[in-house]
Amino acid sequence: MSRYDVVVVGAGAAGLSGALALVRSRRSVLVIDDGRPRNAPAGHVHNFLTRDGAPPSEINAIGRAEVAGYGGQFATGTVTAIRRDEVFTVELADGTAYQARRILVTSGLTDVLPEVSGLAERWGKDVLHCPYCHGWEVRDQAIGVLAISPLASHQAQLFRQLSDDVTLFLHTAPELTAEQREELTARQIAVVQGRVEQVEIRDGKLTGVRLENGKFLPLEVLAVQPILRAKATFLTELGLEVSAQEVRGVGYGDALAVDVQGQTAVPGVFAAGNVTDPMAQVVHAAGAGLQAGAAINGDLIAEDTRSALASRGS
């Protein structure tokens, strides 16, 4: 069984950034990835200084090449379990296993979309979620916001900064408060009662939504609020569980808890990126990966020093 200083689970911005810091410190590193990046449906990455507008695949390819250039290795597969004895054993779905002194979890998250016919088909194209990721590209268009929680009112206000034509569809969200209605009215954001039954598509583009009463409303863009689920079930045998995340008392998903250096509750297991911070954009994830990679190297140095002192004493 191959053994490494560090096995990194996930080859997104956080994983590759952490791996780069480690290989540049002459650590042996294996990056395992399932080949299903969260941002694959998106055409471009934004708000990443010097890389604004670059396709996600291009950034990933550059990152892989940089890590490989310092001796980092890669494996394709799905991690199903991690166990710990004297070292960590990382098991893949195909039965392959690797050993590591430390683990860096950067497995990301899954966007759980509202169950509306046609919505998933346009995800990452003209069905969007983040005004900072996609807002400039949809400026001045007819934008709808599909509400599933009280947070949708804030989301509508964010998109109102980008277009004068914004409609909030209450869908399955609770009734608006009087304050929310007043704020939406003040900024001329239309509010539509009733569930959205279907996203209408024509010639490969979103054309609008149809309500459960049959009424059709034309749109060019639909913003949604996915539930953000951390991809961390393979950590169960280590005793690590995700915890619910809230904004203003409203739940929006879950995440793995870490300290400021990316250390989890299990010594030797670190994590970074969307698995720990669901709201993080690519540039944030890259920074967190670097932080965790540096912390892991420091942790290994401390262990190496203890071993050297023990050998010297014997």
Rank of each mutant, 00 (worst) to 15 (best):
A14Q: 06
A190L: 01
A223E: 05
V221I: 14
G35H: 07
Q155A: 08
A295S: 11
G273V: 05
Q161W: 04
Q261A: 14
V116E: 00
T89I: 00
H134R: 05
Q281Y: 00
V282I: 15
V258G: 08
Y252V: 02
Y98C: 05
D94W: 04
Y132C: 07
N274S: 05
Q261G: 15
V275W: 02
N213I: 08
V90L: 01
G298Y: 03
L113P: 01
L168C: 07
A255C: 07
V199C: 08
G249E: 00
K205F: 06
G12I: 08
H284R: 13
Y70V: 04
G289F: 06
F216A: 07
E179T: 06
P150H: 00
V209N: 09
A93D: 15
T276C: 15
E86F: 02
G268V: 06
G35V: 06
G69N: 04
I32N: 07
V145A: 01
G10N: 13
T207A: 07
M279T: 07
D299R: 11
Q261E: 15
P278A: 05
T50I: 03
V127C: 03
A244S: 14
G124W: 01
R160A: 12
Q155H: 10
G298N: 13
M279W: 04
R139Q: 05
R187S: 09
T78R: 15
R229S: 06
L16D: 00
R24P: 10
Y252F: 12
G293C: 11
V275G: 02
R24W: 07
T276S: 10
T207R: 11
E183T: 12
V221R: 14
V87D: 12
D5A: 10
V79T: 15
F74P: 13
N274R: 01
R3G: 13
S17T: 05
D299A: 11
A61P: 04
A255K: 02
V31E: 04
T172L: 06
R187P: 01
R139W: 00
A54P: 08
L219K: 08
I201V: 12
A265I: 01
N39Q: 02
E175G: 15
R84K: 14
P37D: 03
A230G: 06
F216E: 07
F169L: 10
A142P: 04
R102V: 04
N297S: 11
E175P: 14
T305Q: 07
R122A: 02
H171Q: 09
R229K: 12
V247D: 13
N60W: 02
P174G: 12
S25A: 15
S107W: 03
N60K: 12
V112M: 00
